[in-house]
């Protein structure tokens, strides 16, 4: 059970990171890593909960904290980042081709 969950979480995270490499534009690139932060973290934390609960024969639930924290913070950071990216793209298109290298 723990083995399957750990493998599943790691595979999902790898797929997400691979999508980060493969996607063409920034706005497409924001999406794949969330696969790792939601399902990957959920699966691996679930594996940890199952493992330690079986090992200590009592419910060990502190990994829930990790999942909750990551689930809450990921949308906040990505929304801030996309807002910054939108701002930078607008600034770049206003500045024109001449100074685009300076902004980059």
């Amino acid at each position: 059970m723990t083995a399957a969950l750990v493998l599943l979480g790691a595979t999902i995270t790898l797929i997400g990171a691979f999508g980060l490499v493969r996607m063409k534009t920034f706005y497409a690139r924001v999406h794949p890593p969330t696969l790792g932060t939601t399902l990957g973290t959920g699966c691996i934390a679930m594996a940890s909960i199952v493992y330690f609960s079986v090992l200590q024969t009592r419910p060990v639930l502190h990994e829930v904290l990790l999942v909750l924290f990551v689930l809450v913070t990921t949308p906040v950071t990505l929304m801030l980042l996309v807002r910054a990216a939108l701002f930078r793209d607008e600034a770049k298109s206003e500045a024109g081709e001449a100074s685009s290298s300076a902004i980059e």
């Binding site: 920034f26 690139r29 932060t37 990957g40 990790l66 990921t74 980042l81 930078r88």
Partner: peptide, 27 residues
């Protein structure tokens, strides 16, 4: 990453993956 925001997304992914790696070490 072509621009700075791509690098920041990469950093975000990097630390989440490092966190998962530490959880697997703990198991």
């Amino acid at each position: 990453g072509p621009r700075a925001q791509d690098r920041v997304v990469g950093f975000d992914t990097l630390y989440v993956t490092a966190m998962l790696l530490l959880v697997t070490f703990g198991i």
